[in-house]
């Protein structure tokens, strides 16, 4: 098995996931509109105060991403289970980690598209002023999405096969995402504002460290989790 073969497997799984999700009626459109709906609800719940809305915008965008992300992660394995495709997938030759990498890549593409829509909606609905340093803001978003996708895909591979998947995935995933959520929101808020306390840099480094640690740990652990 060479690297080239592994990479082909990863790409094939990711492409299959993304195309089926984008084609399915219950796929991308519904998950993305759920994200926007959550944003609107949060906007209404937080009241008409424009200043308060702007302050809450970062947290609202991340929460909307989180909740609709959970749906997406569960779906990525559920679809496989319902069609009975997971068992044959496991029987294919080649290392198991390529399955995880493929799922990861598929979810990453899926969630990136969704975050783009949610962020655009958030900017409009919450009246966010885009700062001059917007590339770093996109960097923070990307790092946060990577952390979310890595842990979400990993836990969904278990939760979606258990008896109570709707409850179990958020229960397992949300506490684990506290550092991601904290770092991403604090860094984004600092970048949107004046960053008086000079905290953005440290939070971005924490995000990098977090993504790295859990990317490695989940790759090691996935082999044990996926075993039939």
């Amino acid at each position: 098995m060479t690297w080239r073969d592994d990479w082909r497997r990863v790409r094939a799984i990711a492409r299959k996931d993304v195309t089926t999700e984008l084609r399915a009626k219950a796929g991308f459109n519904s998950v993305a509109s759920l994200g926007v709906t959550i944003l609107i609800l949060l906007g209404l719940a937080l009241g008409p105060d424009a200043e308060a809305l702007r302050n809450a915008s970062v947290g609202a965008v991340w929460l909307a991403t989180l909740f609709s992300g959970v749906l997406a992660f569960n779906r990525s394995f559920q679809v496989e289970l319902e069609s009975g495709a997971l068992e044959p997938l496991l029987l294919y030759p080649g290392p198991r980690w390529t399955i995880f990498a493929g799922k990861l890549l598929g979810n990453l593409i899926f969630l990136t598209l969704m975050v783009a829509i949610v962020v655009a909606a958030g900017i409009v609905l919450f009246g966010v002023q885009i700062p001059a340093d917007w590339p770093s803001l996109i960097g923070v978003l990307a790092l946060g999405v990577v952390g979310l996708v890595v842990l979400g895909t990993f836990y969904a591979s278990m939760a979606s096969r258990s008896r109570a998947r709707e409850v179990l995935l958020p229960l397992l995933l949300f506490p684990m995402l506290v550092p991601v959520l904290l770092a991403a929101t604090t860094a984004s808020k600092a970048l949107l504002g004046a960053d008086v306390m000079h905290e953005a840099g440290a939070w971005i480094r924490l995000l990098v460290a977090y993504d790295l640690v859990f990317l490695i740990a989940t790759f090691i652990a996935f082999e044990h989790v996926i075993e039939a």
Partner: peptide, 19 residues
Amino acid sequence: AVGAIGALNVPIVYMSVKW
């Protein structure tokens, strides 16, 4: 897997909320 990865998360949560 959940126990090991969960425990791994603990020092990070601690560091992050400490800041």
